[in-house]
Amino acid sequence: MALIRKKKKPEPEIPSSSMADISFLLLIFFLVSTVIDVDTGIGLTLPEYVPPDQIQTAPISKDRMAALLINEQGDVLLDGNVIAIPQISKNLKARIESKIELDKNKKLIVSIKTDRKTSYNLYIQALDQVRMAFNEVREEYSKKKFGKRFIDLDQDQAQEVKEKIPVIISIAEPELIKK
């Protein structure tokens, strides 16, 4: 009698050699269809819109105000004096520092005014200098008071620094800009 032996069944298995190819395809799809670049920029909050006939002007003491004017030739005026753009932050820093301990409504306001034909690049450079001045004063204040850098402060401490040194940048109403 012939020996009837059960044929050994091969173990069932899913072919997985193409798995790598499939996941490579997926990977490439995601690489192509997504963006990684982070958005960086200078943040600003615009004032609310007020119709031109309802604008109320409140008098502000000259001491509180730093007026920055940029004309179309690229000349920069800070409170009536011609200044080079890289000098702005140094100049403002001293003025911000002198107002740290003053009341909330006596902090420095930086007003930036441009012509319609002023180059945008120049405006950003000036705005950058102003932001830098505020940032540096904040940095120094938190180092002196808490012995830490501004970004390492906890929420309450950061809030305190922000209250002491608020960033107030005002953009002039365009109606006041000559066309």
Binding site: V38, D39, T40, G41, G43, Y120
Partner: peptide, 10 residues
């Protein structure tokens, strides 16, 4: 885009 130093991430 213009270039600046005192920038922050969104």
């Amino acid at each position: 885009l213009p270039e600046a130093k005192a920038i922050e991430k969104i």
